[in-house]
């Protein structure tokens, strides 16, 4: 399982990159969901959002999930390419699979990579 050390993580398996303002779902989340077939982005550029707000809805072959903002701020960009290529979330969740970019993002209730790794290990059975 990939957990980049420069990112912050939520208990609901989203990541936030404080240096770029990007948000997305973790490698753990995409593997739990398995093959993702649908992404709907629920926020628009220019919108002010608070941490914890639903930003996207994803569906895989066997599951569905709401994705929550790991940080709050003004939405600077949304990755609409995901709508046509939802499997990007499976193949590159931390890179091409970013969901939205925030301006002046203020972290919500997040943890660092080490804490998140331990958190995921704790959930394995």
């Amino acid at each position: 399982m990939n957990v980049p050390s420069n990112l912050k993580y939520t208990k609901s398996d989203e990541w936030f990159d404080p240096s770029t303002g990007n948000l997305g779902i973790t490698d753990y989340a995409q593997s739990q969901l398995s093959d993702i077939v649908f992404v709907e982005l629920l926020v628009e550029v220019g919108e002010e959002i608070s941490a914890g707000k639903p930003i996207a809805s994803v569906e895989s072959v066997k599951a569905s999930a709401e994705i929550y903002a790991a940080a709050g701020g003004k939405v600077a960009a949304v990755n609409s390419a995901l709508v046509d290529k939802p499997d990007t979330l499976n193949s590159d969740p931390f890179g091409e699979g970013w969901m939205i970019k925030l301006e002046g993002g203020a972290e919500g209730d997040v943890m660092d990579a080490a804490a998140y790794t331990a958190y995921c290990d704790g959930r394995a059975h």
């Binding site: 077939v37 809805s57 569906e59 072959v61 066997k62 599951a63 569905s64 709401e66």
Partner: peptide, 13 residues
Amino acid sequence: TLTAREQHIKRER
């Protein structure tokens, strides 16, 4: 197909 839209998975959503 696209069963994740349906109630047995998505429940109240």
